[in-house]
Design a protein around this nucleic acid. Structure first.
Lengths: 199, 199
DNA sequence: GCTTGACTTGACCGATCGGTCTAGTAGACT
DNA sequence: AGTCTACTAGACCGATCGGTCAAGTCAAGC
């Protein structure tokens, strides 16, 4: 069924895949249309520009990661600190699976786009910043739970959450650079140490 | 004096600046030539391709960072752990200065290129991987010094060094996404905590 | 003074870029 | 049945892409 919604979604999905596999500037509208089986005219019926599609693709990916990783990892069925460990494991699993499928650790699509466009497209940077803050909040909330349950001393959980998420992004970029996802799994275990404030 | 070496270096310098300010694919050979005051033909006399120039630019940047940040930060004039702190301060200073100059935290040029090209150009990925391993080694050596001086317990310094460097890359990417270099300064202090093994 | 080879000049190449436009199709509402 | 609108088809646009090439400049070595 080629409904209009399908066409739009097909463009978003294709853009997600192609941009994640290379980069924003390396992927052309023509290539996206070709792979999605959509004509140029339809493309520009749904999106004002290539950039608008990329922004939509980022939203789509954000929702995907929120559902497939965050919701599961941070659900309160286990102890708070175990949730953070579970988060890193889920991140590892995802990137390992991408590598098994494509041969490459593709890295964090948001981080990649932030690196490529952050200094050039402030709208895109803002959007990714917002997403990162959301992730930060999930970690923050978990750390607060840990403090309340006595698993961690009282601390600035917000700063600790930022440190932990930055560490996650760093591990993912590192894993991409080395094309080895196991770094995320092996070094991710240290993440919680960032929560302990220096004396 | 427009010697041949000058022409080549001017191309490398211009490529460094332009690519760091945006990205590899966003910068054209024409633009590089224009800004460097060099003609197309001269460009392709010195470099076989745009990619070769980018690789040369990466080498050039690596040498620059090695001299301007690493050599100073990790010199043995202060205690080992203080050197690591000094490293993060130096990283902060650099990115703050870039922001003061350009208005944007441009991020780690190597990390940016790894994100943009890592899945597409394995030669580039390998080169950046090698550079990261060098950085890793500097941190590893410093941690070993700290262990020997009794400032840290015995540990897997290599793994700790990888964690700390990944954390640095993460903080830099985070700072770029937020266009706020102070994150590097404020959160960098926690880096050493990554060296303490869990358990 | 002649030759050689490194370097420069700038026109030129086909391909592709992001984006526009006109014509047409098809399903829903009156 | 007729109209309207959402959507599709695909030719077409100027600009730019990375890269080539023939012609020429110029300084060093003989």
């Amino acid at each position: 069924m080629d409904t209009a919604a399908d066409t739009r979604q097909r463009l978003v999905d294709t853009a997600r895949n192609l941009i994640a596999a290379s980069s924003y500037h390396a992927v052309g509208v023509q290539e996206i249309c070709g792979q999605a089986g959509v004509q140029k005219g339809s493309f520009y019926h749904f999106f004002d520009s290539k950039r608008e599609l990329a922004l939509a693709a980022v939203d789509d990916m954000a929702e995907y990661f929120s559902r497939s990783i965050f919701e599961h990892a941070f659900s309160a069925d286990i102890a708070p600190l175990a949730r953070i460990e579970r988060f890193f494991t889920a991140v590892y699993n995802y990137h390992q699976q991408v590598k098994d499928t494509t041969g490459h650790v593709q890295g964090c699509p948001f981080g990649n786009l932030a690196g490529e466009l952050g200094s050039v497209d402030s709208g895109m940077r803002d959007k990714i910043d917002t997403l990162f803050r959301l992730a930060e909040t999930a970690i923050d909330q978990t750390l607060q739970d840990a403090v309340e349950q006595g698993d961690l001393p009282r601390m600035d959980t917000h700063a600790a959450a930022r440190a932990i998420f930055a560490y996650a992004e760093g591990l993912i970029l590192y894993a991409k650079t080395r094309n080895d996802a196991t770094l995320i799994r092996d070094l991710g275990k240290r993440a919680i140490q960032l929560a302990i404030e220096a004396g």
